[in-house]
């Protein structure tokens, strides 16, 4: 697993290094981010005063791993109007968020950098480098990447036979091997239950399929306030009788930040207690 990642790394490092050697481009002075993940990357990488607004989701402690820091920035709700009025010279957005707003900002001549959801550690590293380059903060990105690589290198090696696990969300939506949380699960030494089933990024698993799959560990999301049928799925007695359960906050592994390693460490700790 490590070798291909290293190759990718080299391939990625080349274009990321290119803008650094051409300082003719002045870095953006007013950056607005309107996506939970670009919010966090921008907060981690931007120079003081460079980032002028983050999305409201970044301030929500349930969704965001950096809610406390995000609270110090003015929030936006991803509307083209409010973003435009902040006179940004760079807008960071996700490929799935606020499509209409992004289109309008582009028509108004605002440069927009769109990032797709990161689906692997290689994606995560590439996005850190990409946002660093876009902000003219290559040094900060390199420092963050060094910490990222150090954390990845510190993960204990997987056992000879991997226990199986499934990351199951509300209504049975489960993360496949080609997802950021799936990558964390694999790095923690588990085999993803969805892998042999042929699913890639995600799938909605019927309750019966989950029970029949007999995972050693079920990774569940934190409960929400109020009540929902979707979460009732996760409390089904047949699921509770299937395997060990571990509740991990989703906010830690939706975005390519160091919070990934909080969930990774928790998974490794549980894996070491699972007798197999």
């Amino acid at each position: 697993m490590r070798l291909p990642a290293a190759c990718l790394l080299l391939a990625l490092a080349a274009p990321a290094a290119a803008p650094a050697s051409t300082p003719a481009v002045t870095p953006p002075a007013r950056v607005v981010s309107m996506n939970l993940c670009t919010d966090q990357l921008a907060m981690l990488l931007a120079a003081p005063g460079q980032l002028v607004s983050v999305s409201w989701l970044a301030q929500d402690p349930r969704s965001s791993a950096m809610a406390a820091e995000a609270a110090t920035y003015p929030a936006n709700r991803g509307l083209a109007e409010e973003v435009f009025l902040r006179r940004p010279d760079l807008v960071l957005a996700g490929t799935f968020t606020a499509r209409a707003s992004v289109g309008m900002l582009r028509r108004l001549g605002v440069p927009v950098l769109e990032l797709p959801p990161a689906l692997s550690f290689a994606d995560a590293r590439a996005q850190i480098a990409e946002v660093g380059a876009a902000l003219g903060r290559e040094a900060a990105a390199a420092a963050l990447l060094a910490r990222f690589d150090a954390a990845l290198a510190a993960v204990p090696p997987p056992p000879a036979t991997r226990p199986t696990a499934a990351i199951v969300g509300e209504s049975g939506f489960a993360a496949g091997p080609e997802s950021l949380s799936g990558a964390v699960l694999e790095a923690a030494g588990f085999a993803n239950l969805l892998g042999p089933m042929g699913y890639e990024t995600a799938a909605r698993l019927p309750l019966e399929a989950l029970v029949m799959g007999r995972p050693d560990l079920l990774v569940l999301p934190e409960p929400w306030p109020g009540w929902s049928q979707a979460e009732e799925f996760l409390r089904h007695p047949a699921l509770a009788a299937t395997g060990a359960e571990l509740v991990l906050p989703d906010r830690n592994w939706v975005c390519p930040t160091l919070a990934l390693f909080d969930n990774l460490d928790a998974l490794v700790a549980v894996r070491q207690t699972l007798a197999r």
Partner: peptide
């Protein structure tokens, strides 16, 4: 109005009905 983000998507269940994934509870 529920603080639960999934609740609003379940209007269909309450108005149409389903027996999927029910338990002895």
């Amino acid at each position: 109005l529920s603080p639960n983000p999934f609740a609003a998507t379940e209007i269909m269940f309450w108005l149409m009905g389903s027996l999927a994934d029910r338990s002895f509870a």
